[in-house]
Design a protein around this nucleic acid. Sequence first.
DNA 1: TTTACTTTGTTAAATAAATTGACAAATAAA
DNA 2: TTTATTTGTCAATTTATTTAACAAAGTAAA
Lengths: 387, 387
Amino acid sequence: MNNSARNSAYTKSYNRKLITGIIHREPVSRAELARKTGLTRAAVSIIVDELISDGFVVEKGVAEAELGRKPVLLDINPESCYALGLNISRDKCSLGIVNLKGELKARKEIDLSSAADAGEALKIISEEIKRMHLETGTAPKKLLGLGISTPGPVDVFSGTIINPPNFDMWKNVNIVGELKKEFPCNILLENNSAALALAEKYYGLGKKFSNFILMVVDTGIGSGIVINDKLYRGFGGFGGEIGHTSINVNGDLCSCGNVGCLEVYASMPAVLKKAKRIEPGISSWNEIVDRAEAGDTRFLEIVEEEARYLSAGIVNVVNILEIEAVVLTGDIFYKHGIIMDSLSRYVNERAMTRKVHRVGLYASEIAKNADIIGAATIVIDDFIRLY
Amino acid sequence: MNNSARNSAYTKSYNRKLITGIIHREPVSRAELARKTGLTRAAVSIIVDELISDGFVVEKGVAEAELGRKPVLLDINPESCYALGLNISRDKCSLGIVNLKGELKARKEIDLSSAADAGEALKIISEEIKRMHLETGTAPKKLLGLGISTPGPVDVFSGTIINPPNFDMWKNVNIVGELKKEFPCNILLENNSAALALAEKYYGLGKKFSNFILMVVDTGIGSGIVINDKLYRGFGGFGGEIGHTSINVNGDLCSCGNVGCLEVYASMPAVLKKAKRIEPGISSWNEIVDRAEAGDTRFLEIVEEEARYLSAGIVNVVNILEIEAVVLTGDIFYKHGIIMDSLSRYVNERAMTRKVHRVGLYASEIAKNADIIGAATIVIDDFIRLY
DNA sequence: TTTACTTTGTTAAATAAATTGACAAATAAA
DNA sequence: TTTATTTGTCAATTTATTTAACAAAGTAAA
């Protein structure tokens, strides 16, 4: 799509997406759209009229102006269509409906414990999707599509779950292909971290940044990379494995085959191992943070060391990609204030770009229901993203 | 340019570049162009006719075909226009003319030792450019532009040399702005490694790869990243600093402010330091390689360790960007056979993507005159690159 | 209050690109 | 020689934006 020739159909589709995306970010007038895009007001009018008659956009009052006729504001009609989001993780499976503004309209946990294999699991999921459609009264014609997110590597082109860690049932399952037989709509699969990055881009901190990474720090360390407002996947869809970049060439072997991986040092199991040497009963990052916050220097040191390790991985990414910001989520999100300052200090002391611009370090702004919203955003992104 | 609206001018320009680029890679017929681009044969004909009447393209015999009318092959007319390349490095300054096929038509070393400051140096350079124009008889109207490459960080948008290492004369000099006063043509500045990556892309191994990095290993370790056939620069133009990614979070401080940088372990000065402990008289990588090749295991170990360090940096890049290949140049190029196998083994044992596809490790294919050809390719790329 | 000036948004005609569909040219196989 | 196939061109058509004029809606100053 991206490297083939241009024609008037492409032009129309591109400009329509461009305008939809700008309105989706925040309400604007036609005149402002013309200024932002470089299109003439006439062209903008034509496209906006179409978007209005398709229901995606609505006129919404007028804005103030110093001089001249007041501009009519255009806004996304959030209820014009819905996206289904399905998040499959190790221990649970969640389904939900999200509108164009990223608001959760319904969610449900699906129990797959009775399913012996992926086929049976897919049957249960299909039933739940149908039920949710009925219960929420979401007409099929208003459906943008279904976004699916899972941990581990996925083949986004074929829609196949490759090899989810500790999660054999879904291994090599072409989940998109299977579900399309039942639901002939736009179905897309992404890695969990990539989906969260998209959610952050459209509905969180990513609004401010065109180039950032979202890091998920829990059992493993995953990431989604956004470059130029687009998800970066690598040429085969397997990029962004920041958890398996090495921060120590002489370090221990990682399960991935590399040595000294960031995950070996900074994932939650790795940190817990250290904490248990101090207090064997400790079983979560939250407990470590609570003790550190209470003033226990032994645990404060663990938090500080976590910051040092994570920042080493982050600086490597920053020096390669020159991103503007890093957004953190996962277990590390808990009382993140305690680690953020150290992280920010380490990164901005060491990144090459520090002379030109700071790298922002933030906690995710959409922690609640991020799993479903992330999955649903995969199809919302497909609707708006430029190509 | 890239994120603004599309119109017919864009469409035309894009399709023209698309077709020019395909012909530039290898001779093709109009029909084949239509198949490759998705344009109709009619549209291809119109664009090709323009390219021919502009002189960029020529018809060049016919190709064999199983059936039907034989296709007329189209080829780039290499002499239809020229690119000037200027490479400024620590110890020398080189100027040259390169045609559209990447062939060097003239080159000259410029002596800047008499210049007290950048202003005087620019005067000398301007004179040499004029002289080269006269001597080679290259009419100004055939000039595609001037590409400039220098080590260290550059601001490609303003055309300013930021802070070349050990090279104070050029610090913060807006070389593009200054030279444009004298030569009102397309003048572009890039980092040295980025320019070499472009040369490799158009005239070397990059023809086979759309996603690769070019690594220059000598006094420092620089790199140029090519993603989707385009140079990746980061959002401010300061990305790709692979030499300053850390391979040891507990390593020594680097001059850049980071710790355990790849450069600290694998740059030529770092390796030489180790070699001198064995044999104080050694003063170059070439000598190390020669002794290793002769069977001296102490030096073989140094070469092997160099491979291990370099591969650690490479694997990190591969796991983040999922590139297809790494092309090496710089001092490390000398008798590269001795290090390539180890490098390839280390990388493909450790990269996450090894289950999906191998990462190719190669020595540069355009070592000769690469400095000038790289610089000139900056403007050739600007002529052909899609946006 | 009137007038001048600005800005927004719409309209019809003009323009510029690729597409459509027909066709001639060139070639190999039947 | 005929048929089938592929290449390349041409004129008419289609589809997008642009151009340029204008009406609508508002502010500010005379």
